[in-house]
Structure formats: C-alpha cells, structure tokens
C-alpha cells in the first residue's frame, strides 16, 4: 500500500520530543510579545502611549494580564455543559499552537550542538492540509464554547462562528490553490523554496489578497471580528468565560495572529528568502519573524482603522466576492501553468 503522505527531514525521536517542547515554548512566548506589540501599536495609532505602567515601558503588562486571569476563580454557568465548557478553550488553544508547529523557520536543517535540526515542528508533504485541518478543528473550540455556555450571547456568537466559518473557509482554500498549483506541492518548506527567485505575492497577488482577507475572517480580526462583537454580543462566544479559561481563548487569539502572519510569510512572502541576499542559515528564523511582524503590523493597522462588517455582509462578501475571485484566480493560474 502506498504511503498517504511522507515527511521531509526528521530527527531522532528524542530530538523530536525536545523540539515539540521548544515549539510549544516558542509559540507561547511569542504570545505576550504579540500582545504587547499590538497594544503598543494600537496606542500609537490612537494618540496614546499604550500600556506603560507595568515594568519598564509596560513590558510586563502581558504577564500581568495573564497572571491576573490565571489567579481568578474558575466559574461556569449553572446550565453549562460542564465538560464541553472546559474542553472548548483547550481545543481552541491546542489547535492554534498545532498550526504554529507547521510553520517552517528555515529550510535546510540547522546544526545545533552537533545535531542537525529542522527549524519547524513537522515538515510533512501535506503540511498545508494539516494547517487547514487544525484551523477547522480550532473553530470547534469557538462553536462548542459558545454552545456549551448556555448563554444567549454566547449562542449567538457561536452561530455567527458557524456562519463565518463556511463563508471564508472555501475562499481561503481556493485562494491557495494558485500557490499550490504554482509550487506543485503542499509541503510548506518546498513552497518556500519555490519562492527563492520570486515571491508568490507577485505572481499570485490576487490570491494573496484574497487569502489575507479570508485569514482576517479566520482569526476574527477587524473588520471581521463578529464572533466577539464586543458592541452587540458583549464578548460573543466567550461571554461566560473568565479567569484561566478566558486566558486560553485570549492566548489562542494571539497565537492565531502570529500563525496568520507566519503563514502569509511562508506562502506569499518567500519565507526565509531575501531578495539579492543569501544570508547564513542561522539568520533564517529572524527573517521569517521580521516578515511575520510586518504582516502582524498590517493586521493591527487594519484593526485601528476599519469598522466591522455585519455578519450577513461578511457572508455576502465571502460567497459573492471572495469565492468567485479565488475560483477565477485558481483557474487562471492552472491555465497559465499548463500552457507555459
């Protein structure tokens, strides 16, 4: 029986266990940085200094936020479906971190203390599919969290999550078809290597824009932050969450933000490749991080600028605008690739 999928480079098992911990650690420690970065940046956009009380220049603000949440009482509504209520934030966060695992920070294995280590969690030849799979499972965290809270606000938030999910996800997938056809692979490292000459953002500009917009919907950022919709649904699906469980959703949200940046970097901005420069391998992760920061900055900028859509408008936009554009983009790419 043929293998369903193969894995690129992989290390001995003990290195893999270590690596899993490291990826988890890196993912987790990027969260407070992203949190602080977003709040500082938003502050500057809005004529205010942003957090600057806790620690030097407010650097300990995220730690204070998260520790405060963790120190709070773990409560749940009387009518909540207990185990689902507890499980949902975990699902949301685990899935967010799992997608982070697939983002490659360098192509060739780097030599760390004599052991060649690939700077990614997993280099599967169906990497992109796994990303999508985890992203879809991750929305169960939102759906079930809203459903199990037994609150009307949470319920409406969960309903919106379902509506939003079906609206953006197909467009998001189709937008990537162009990249996949051009690269001829689903492996994220190989997609990056295909971009050594020309970043996909140039030939795949339409796909990049479509994917970026759909990603905003996926990670619930403005103008598509309808699940939380703090003005109408209080906090949407997480209205009834507090303390540590809320912190999990909160962390998941920022992991999503980083993953969105990393994924866009990987798929469209050439990953660790720089134009005209062939930097040493140990610089690769920093190049990826720098590009991720650019994307994250852009997302925060959008948040500071735009109002949010209504959820029926998002659905209309997803089905009537994004989906046709993504489809045409995929078709044109396919024709061009075959005819070339």
């Amino acid at each position: 029986m043929p293998l369903l999928s193969t894995v690129g480079y992989y290390e001995p098992w003990y290195v893999q266990i270590l690596k899993a911990l490291v990826v988890f650690g890196v993912g987790f420690s990027l969260v407070p940085l992203a949190l602080l970065y977003e709040r500082k940046l938003l502050g500057r956009f809005q004529n205010r200094p942003g957090p600057n009380r806790v620690g030097p220049f407010g650097t300990l603000q995220p730690a204070a936020d998260i520790l405060k949440l963790l120190g709070k009482e773990q409560f749940r509504p009387t009518n909540a479906i207990g185990w689902l209520f507890i499980l949902s934030p975990l699902v949301a966060m685990v899935c967010a971190l799992a997608t982070f695992m697939l983002i490659p920070f360098s192509g060739a294995p780097q030599d760390i203390l004599g052991t060649p280590v690939g700077l990614y969690g997993l280099d599967s030849d169906i990497g992109l599919l796994i990303v999508f799979a985890f992203a879809s499972v991750g929305s169960y965290g939102v759906l079930l969290g809203g459903w199990s809270s037994a609150s009307k606000y949470s319920f409406l938030g969960a309903m919106r999550a379902a509506a939003q999910l079906i609206s953006y996800e197909i467009a998001q997938g189709l937008a990537l078809l162009g990249v996949i056809i051009s690269a001829g692979t689903l492996s994220l490292t190989e997609i990056v290597d295909e971009q050594s000459a020309l970043w996909f953002v140039i030939p795949q500009l339409v796909g990049a824009i479509t994917f970026f917009i759909a990603t905003l919907a996926e990670i619930n950022r403005t103008p598509f932050d309808l699940l939380e919709a703090d003005s109408e649904l209080v906090a949407g699906f997480m209205t009834e969450y507090g303390g540590g469980r809320f912190a999990l959703y909160y962390v998941a949200e920022y992991v999503h933000l980083i993953v969105a940046g990393g994924l866009f970097t990987t798929l469209f901005l050439g990953g660790w490749h720089l134009p005209f420069v062939d930097q040493p391998g140990w610089l690769d992760p920093f190049v990826v991080l720098a590009k991720t920061i650019v994307v994250v900055t852009f997302i925060v900028w959008i948040r500071a600028t735009l109002p949010k859509l209504r959820y029926d408008q998002l659905m209309t936009f997803g089905w009537k605008v994004l989906l046709p554009i993504a489809t045409v983009n995929a078709l044109v790419t396919a024709v061009v690739v075959v005819a070339w």
């Binding site: 938003l42 809005q46 004529n47 205010r48 932050d225 500071a304 600028t305 109002p307």
Partner: peptide, 16 residues
C-alpha cells in the same frame, strides 16, 4: 458610535 460599529480609533481622536 464609531466604537460601536468597530472603528475604535475615532474614539480617541474625537476625545482629543
């Protein structure tokens, strides 16, 4: 109003 429809920055500008 701008905050209610999601355009949060206007709040700070108008309060300035």
């Amino acid at each position: 109003t701008a905050l209610d429809i999601g355009a949060m920055s206007i709040l700070w500008y108008s309060f300035r």
